[in-house]
Simulated assay, not measured.
Amino acid sequence: MTAPIEVTGSDAEAQPEAVLAGIDRKAIQGRSLWQIAWLRLKRDKVALIGGGIVVFLILVAIFGPFLVQDPNVFHQNLNDPTFNRPKYGFWHSGISGDHWLGVEPSNGRDMLARIVHGARVSLLVAFCATLLSVVIGVVLGVVAGYFGGWVDTIISRAMDVFLAFPLLLFAIALVGVLADASVFGLSGNGLRIWVLMFVIGFFNWPYIGRIIRGQTLSLREREFVDAARSMGAGSFYILFRELLPNLVAPILVYSTLLIPTNILFEAALSFLGVGVIPPKPSWGGMLSQAVSTYSVAPMFMVIPGLAIFITVLAFNLFGDGLRDALDPRAK
């Protein structure tokens, strides 16, 4: 057995508090779930690139139309009337210092201006339709998941009906009926845009509604719901103060994934001729016009196609990254 070591002097007098007081340390700070999610998202470079493109597209849609020329001004002197295509540029696109993305065949309208103005139409319809879908889907999904029983049965069967509804045919028929009508003082393109937002948003709510219903079925069995109920909280308090804040993450994720779907649907309707009325530009309408001139001026189809492709891809990449950041167990 060794003898105990005797401590003398200043070491013997030093107390733990005194030792800790002499250490230059930082107070430990907690992190919220949103801060942790942001740290995860920052590590996903692909998602950040997608998010940067999304922000850029939104800024282009808001401020771009004020910075470019009139999209309906003709420059017919730039086109070759013999072949019905621009006289110069790569693939007869008409790209030059004055027209960065070239000009349209036959009439010479500036492609950059039409792409920028088309971005405003596509993103406006997609965002407003998504907002309508999210509001309806979240409210009905939470109510169905929490109350269950006959309420859940009615809402779930309504979801099945909407999912089986021929949305494309209905949109074509509705726009055809309202082609020359005036509703609430709206007519022409104003009415078309509101009809597109309503049709796309109202009939797409079951997609997010089913997801929110499933999440609510899981959350309603958690301890914090039982605690709120035991303290006398009512159903609406539990729905909107206890359950809804815990559903913010899936709502954000699936909203970002629903936006590109709505962009494609609006482009499809415009391609079929039931979107905005020409000469107002839209990406789908530009693709429809490019079908007849693709053989002589292929860039007229490539440019709006790339605009749709890049926009949808950026939203999907950002949505996937956001999902992984908010729910890493879903990887």
Rank of each mutant, 00 (worst) to 15 (best):
F162Y: 11
E223C: 04
D320Y: 09
L59Q: 01
F300K: 03
L269C: 02
G108P: 14
I211E: 03
L41E: 01
G275H: 06
W91Q: 09
V60C: 06
A164E: 05
V177I: 14
L244R: 02
L101I: 04
I308E: 01
P81I: 07
V116H: 10
V19P: 00
F162R: 00
D110Q: 03
I238G: 00
P206A: 04
I28L: 11
Y294E: 01
E223P: 08
M1A: 09
A126G: 12
Y207N: 14
S218L: 10
I154Y: 08
R40G: 08
L239M: 15
T311P: 09
L191H: 00
A144L: 10
P105Y: 02
G321A: 05
V142M: 14
T256V: 10
R157C: 06
L123V: 12
K87I: 13
T8V: 14
T216S: 06
W150Q: 08
F203V: 05
G305E: 13
G145Y: 11
P71H: 02
T256N: 13
S133F: 13
S133M: 11
F162L: 13
T82S: 09
F162Q: 08
E266A: 07
L313V: 13
G188H: 06
E223Y: 07
F162A: 11
L41F: 15
M159R: 04
F318E: 00
D160Q: 07
L272P: 09
H99I: 12
I136H: 00
M197I: 15
Y294T: 12
W283E: 04
A126F: 12
P4F: 05
A61P: 04
A113D: 08
V195P: 02
V175T: 12
I263L: 13
G273M: 06
K280R: 12
N84L: 15
V7Y: 14
G50F: 06
V302S: 01
G185K: 01
K331C: 03
L313H: 00
Y294V: 15
F147R: 15
V296H: 07
V138A: 12
I53G: 04
A47T: 10
A173P: 03
V116K: 11
Y237Q: 11
I211Q: 04
G185E: 02
L78G: 02
L39W: 06
V116G: 10
F265K: 05
G30K: 12
G305R: 11
R241V: 09
A12H: 07
A119K: 03
M301G: 15
V183L: 13
V135N: 08
L132K: 03
G284T: 06
F83S: 07
I49E: 05
E17F: 06
V134F: 01
G214M: 08
S10C: 03
T256A: 14
P281G: 05
A179V: 13
I238R: 00
A18R: 03
